[in-house]
Write a protein that binds this DNA or RNA. Structure first.
Length: 873
RNA sequence: GCCGGGGUGGUGAAAUUGGUAUACACGCAGGUUUUAGGAACCUGUGCAGCAAUGCGUGGAGGUUCAAGUCCUCUCCCCGGCACCA
């Protein structure tokens, strides 16, 4: 037998697996499927570092395991290849991102291949493939027709470095762009916008059923940010204006003594005009507003640390008391929360601080034992000075108060969401072209895409709008939005179905447009279009989609094999959905989804949104795309800290494989820590798994450890093997992959240990069983030993998982801990068939126990552990 | 401030869900072998103590025959959100 040298066999097996299509996707069978998916990577020029494959190894282990258990497994890989980094790199190098991306993908694929993943490469996809983005475009048109996607002027976050507008979700809390770290600015642009808030409730309630990490679920709930409260209406003295405030603590309303509004609040400009008209002094207010307007986003954030404001000189009438509430402009009132106006009292720390600074009187209606006002957020206490509600407990009276306010016409109940419309336009070249045409003339005539003649000629499946509407109505969801934006969309027409895909033109080189437009806007030949409505000259939309477009639905594409993929465009042209419903039904939803936590409110939220909509349009039969989600923890550089090119501390999987082989890389990445945990790479610790593999090699290939027949077999090792099978099965279910490797090591330690000076032997069959258990983790060495030593001609990865034999795994004798009053005093070896009373009697005879039993009320306690007969139920 | 996740040897971490705390691995120490090694193998390794034994899972209480695990309070670390009314 040759010495252990992974290089000798790893590349050989890669070729054989590829040639034999060892990992091709089988026909799905209903209850027996597992769709195991990685968040597909964004191919970059830097290639992979050892952090990237951590999640991929976990899904690969699970996929291999479930295949051996007889499941039909779908385990594909693809490329999220549109997007900013590749485009920025391309501009820098004066190249087209298409060419760069091709190279990046090739390098990623080479690296992934060398790790021995069992992807079905026949199902590979790239979002940049026109055949793929044709369907992204079809979906765009669908959402447009459903009234969920429309174009309007909006203030957007704009990245001056990437020269594009962004979605709110892409801006981090420090005001920087999540991709490039540049501080964003605000800009008003004409943008395609998704009405995702219409799905706030649907997205929120769906979270409960997900088997996802709590943190991610909490982030989504938080991002959707549902708040139920009360909007109170006020007349403003001397102004023809109704000022609405929002509160989630209506029970404290009788304490309110002033109102603050955001500087952008419409009432402020009204007041300024009114002041000008009646000649009152407005300089202080005007000065304040002018100063605020010059502040950037980050300056505003910093500014709010100190509460500032100015009195407007106007008063609102409190509908509750008829009293006058002075209206102030204040920096802590945010226009994008609630109504942008707040009633203030002593029950809020901010309000108190502001009132103290400017000498505004405050009141309180609930006080603690020393007379200090209780914070409204505590929602407790007994009301004072609250008209007919005085003397009542806050917690019990709130609903009654709300109902009374509403019945008096003072207020209305209102639900507020943090979730904002999703801005879907990017002023970039490297994205899916938006399949829309704008015609000036038709716009003037008020023609829309929903006009019957236009609709019919587009070739789009018309039934979806009705189906969609019907399902929303059945759920009691508002359908107003479906038609609401149509009048704003006159002159905008989707491409006819036979024109899909709208291909991105190949540009030799180009630079970013600095005026808030896409580079495509400068390509006059390309953007010229014919109006699908009047046949006259028109223009294509020149903005492109964000790279979320491709990732929102790629898991649907993977469910399609090459022939059903070929049917997608023909389906669309027949006015049908592109998808093969049978294939979707049999594979989806994704059972196990693995990726980084940074997508919590980006990809994961957007995908859920699209699928909820597709479900309402009855294009898919499931509502939640990802049943179970696991986040892999980051792999830090040795000693801690992020790996980065600039620090020169990046560990490349290529070099690890060159030194130790792919099996050791895989094993170490799974062994180093629970896989959701952040962990630093250790160049020393990887030696441990390398030694283990070497031991596996030596034992399995040595005839000393091989039994001729079952008579020759070491029973203890065989029993350990049965326990191992059981342990692995339960840990796989819990996705605790690190402890499976520990268990394999423990088994090896037993097998390798001498028994009365002789090596322990296992039969060929049981050596096979051990190799099968290890195969999902270390596919190369197990395949080599399976083939060379055990003489198999088929792949171990297509073999059946060993059968767990419980009767064999049960010990005849165990070591039982004996405690006296809860403290461990001794251990005794007992037969598992013994009765409890006999064991106690046996323990009482032990000298080491007896000495602890001298005294009052002391007794023996046996640890109820699995194994002994009397412990089992 | 709010939400989520954590605190166990020198290090990465286990612990059958209330039953022998520190499995497995790294590192370290001593030894064997080798011309030599950063190789291989063996032994040891929570702390204190010669020992019996005592102490020990961030801290303080509690429940229990028995607590890393359950309850109450508290401190610290990581991630997310945020003057959210």
């Amino acid at each position: 037998m040759p010495i252990f040298d992974p290089k000798q066999y790893e590349s050989k097996w890669l070729d054989i697996w590829e040639k034999n299509k060892t990992y091709s996707t089988p026909q799905p069978r209903d209850s027996q499927k597992q769709y195991i998916l990685d968040m597909f990577p964004y191919p970059s020029g830097a290639g992979l570092h050892v952090g990237h494959p951590r999640g991929y190894i976990a899904t690969d282990v699970l996929s291999r395991y479930y295949r051996m258990r007889g499941y039909a497994v779908l385990h594909p890989m693809g490329w999220d290849a549109f997007g900013l980094p590749a485009e920025n790199a391309a501009i820098k190098e004066g190249k087209n991102p298409q060419d760069l991306t091709k190279n990046y993908i090739a390098n990623f694929k080479r690296q992934l291949r060398s790790i021995g993943f069992s992807y079905d490469w026949d199902r590979e996809l790239a979002t940049t493939d026109p055949a793929y983005y044709a369907i992204s475009q079809w979906l765009f048109i669908l959402f447009f027709y459903l009234g969920l996607l429309y174009k309007k002027n909006v203030p957007v976050y704009y990245c001056g470095y990437c020269k594009t507008g962004l979605a709110q979700e892409e801006v981090l809390s420090d005001g920087t762009h999540e991709r490039c770290g540049n501080v964003v600015e605000q800009k008003e642009l004409f943008q395609w916008v998704f009405k995702i808030p219409e799905y706030a409730e649907s997205l929120l309630s769906g979270i409960d059923e997900l088997n996802w990490p709590e943190g991610i679920k909490a982030m989504q709930r938080n991002w959707i940010g549902k708040k139920e409260g009360l909007v109170i209406h006020h007349e403003v003295e001397g102004l023809d204006y109704h000022l609405d405030t929002f509160t989630v603590y209506p029970a404290f309303s009788y304490a309110d003594s002033y109102i603050v509004v955001a500087s952008e609040h419409p009432v402020v400009s009204l007041i300024l005009t009114a002041k000008q008209a009646d000649g009152t002094d407005s300089t202080a207010l005007r000065h304040y507003i002018d100063t605020v307007e010059t502040l950037t986003r980050e300056q505003k954030i910093a500014d709010v640390k100190e509460k500032k404001g100015v009195f407007t000189g106007y008063y609102a009438i409190d509908p509750l008391t008829g009293g006058r509430l002075p209206i102030w402009v204040a920096n802590f009132a945010m226009m994008d929360f609630g109504t942008g106006a707040i009633r203030c009292s002593a029950h809020d720390a901010r309000d108190r601080e502001f009132a103290k600074k400017y000498g505004i009187p405050v009141k309180s209606v609930v006080n603690d034992s020393v007379g200090a006002p209780i914070e409204a957020s505590a929602k407790k206490g007994v009301l004072e000075n609250s008209a007919s509600f005085t003397g009542r407990d806050v917690s019990e009276v709130e609903q009654e108060m709300v109902e009374w306010f509403v019945s008096q016409g003072f207020a209305k109940q209102s639900t507020n969401y943090h979730l904002r419309e999703w801005i879907f336009s990017r002023q970039r070249y490297w994205g899916e072209p938006i399949p829309m045409i704008f015609c000036d003339r038709c716009a003037d005539l008020g023609k829309t895409a929903w006009d019957e003649d236009v609709l019919a000629s587009t070739g789009f499946g018309l039934g979806y709008i009705d189906t969609f509407k019907r399902n929303l109505e059945q759920r009691g969801q508002s359908t107003r939005f479906i038609t609401e934006s149509r009048s704003m969309m006159s002159g905008w027409f989707p491409l006819t179905m036979d024109r899909l895909p709208l291909e991105l033109p190949y540009l030799e080189s180009y630079s970013a447009n600095t005026e808030g437009k896409s580079p495509l806007a400068d390509v006059f030949v390309w953007k010229k279009a014919t109006c699908p409505c009047c046949g006259g000259p028109a223009e294509y939309e020149t903005d492109t989609m964000p790279n979320w477009a491709g990732s929102c639905w790629y898991f649907l594409y993977f469910a399609h094999d090459s022939s059903s993929r070929g049917q997608m465009l023909p389906n669309v042209m027949r006015g049908e959905s592109p998808f093969d419903k049978d294939l979707l039904d049999s594979w989806l939803p994704v059972d196990t989804y693995v990726g980084g936590a940074e997508h919590a409110v980006l990809h994961l939220l957007y995908s859920r949104f699209w699928i909820h909509v597709l479900n309402d349009a009855e294009i898919v039969n499931f509502r939640e795309p990802f049943t179970s989600l696991y986040n892999q923890g980051m792999v830090l550089a040795p000693g801690g800290g992020k790996m980065s090119k600039s620090k020169g501390n990046v560990i490349n999987p290529d070099s690890v494989i060159a030194e130790y082989g792919a099996d050791a890389l895989r094993l170490y990445e799974m062994f180093m820590a629970p896989f959701s945990q952040e962990v630093a790479w250790s160049t020393e610790s990887i030696q441990g798994v390398y030694r283990f593999l070497k031991k596996v090699w030596q034992l399995c290939s040595s005839t000393d450890h091989l039994a001729d027949g079952s008579k020759d077999e070491d029973q203890e090792t065989f029993r350990e093997l049965q326990k191992l099978v059981h342990k692995v099965e339960s840990d796989m279910t819990d996705v605790k992959l690190n402890t499976i490797i520990s268990a394999c090591m423990e088994f090896m330690n037993v097998w390798a240990s001498a028994s009365s000076g002789l090596p322990r032997r296992l039969t060929k069959e049981h050596v096979s069983d051990f190799l099968k258990i290890l195969a999902p983790f270390a596919p190369f060495i197990t395949e080599e030993l399976w083939s060379i030593v055990l003489g198999n001609t088929t792949s171990i990865h297509q073999s059946q998982w060993p059968v767990y034999r419980r009767s064999i795994s049960e010990d005849k004798e165990i070591v039982l801990a004996v405690q006296v009053n809860g403290k461990l005093r001794s251990t005794i070896r007992i037969s598992t068939s013994m009765e409890e009373s006999d064991v106690v009697a046996l323990a009482e005879q032990e000298k080491s126990i007896q000495k602890w039993l001298q005294g009052e009320g002391l007794s023996i306690d046996l640890c109820k552990r699995e194994g002994a007969k009397f412990c089992n139920p």
